[in-house]
Design a binder for these strands. Structure first.
Lengths: 127, 127
DNA sequence: ATAAATTTGCAAATGACTTGCAAAAATGCC
DNA sequence: GGCATTTTTGCAAGTCATTTGCAAATTTAT
């Protein structure tokens, strides 16, 4: 593990919400080139330390967001994203494993990944 | 409705799978500038004639895919995407409306949109 | 029709992400 | 630890989907 990777992983682990490359490369704890950030986000995901999804929001455009994944505990989380304040709310671990298996049997395909998230306006921004 | 919009809507309506801007602007039935394609895809979605999601696949990169939405029938579809042959399989109308409502009540937010799709290898490519 | 409002094509810009390459850091081996 | 080998990093330039300014062309309203 290089310095950059350790630092990145540390930040992902501590973050309560998914973060994008642009958010990370602005962080003083990550004084690395953006190419390094991108390359290592790929690396961490590939190694099973992180997972990601692409989200588009009007204010921040289209970006990939990463979150920490404790290796072994296979269950990833799903998120709600507030378009106003750009906060993410954790909806808890994925509860669709059964459904996925049913679909695999029904259609005969193999699911390697699924993407699920919500977009809207959070409770605070609503009022 | 302008010529471009009618032609685009027609293509979307006839397409059995979601299509991206690049696929559309290659189509001889759509002899329009790419800017026009993009602008009108936005227009059609805004008017409720289409819906879209962003999907990344190794071979085709990151693109937004559009599909026709008959106005009134509120139920959109979810899709499986094969990474090998780049085909989409229709999983049927969204069955998560109830779950969405429950989440809205539990968390107090308003869901304006949800994204859900599967990625993997289809039955034909598997063998 | 004719004027006013909207849309189109063109070409340049944007922004996230990627890549080639030489220097720097991590790793393997003694 | 010290040296050779492999991998990673920074830099700068490149990609690629998508967007935008603006004048010309098409729609729409009257």
């Amino acid at each position: 593990m290089t310095k950059a990777r350790k630092a990145l992983l540390e930040l992902l682990k501590e973050s309560k919400e998914p973060v994008s490359a642009s958010m990370l490369s602005g962080d003083p704890a990550l004084p690395f080139d953006q190419a390094t950030i991108y390359r290592n986000l790929h690396y961490l995901e590939e190694q099973g330390f992180a997972e990601s999804f692409i989200l588009h929001c009007t204010e921040h455009g289209t970006e990939r967001y990463y979150s920490y994944l404790s290796r072994g505990e296979g269950v990833h989380h799903h998120w709600f994203h507030c378009e106003k304040c750009h906060k993410f709310i954790d909806l808890g671990g994925c509860a669709y494993q059964e459904q996925m298996k049913e679909w695999e049997q029904k259609y005969g395909f193999i699911i390697t990944e699924h993407t699920f998230f919500l977009t809207g306006i959070c409770a605070s921004c609503k009022s």
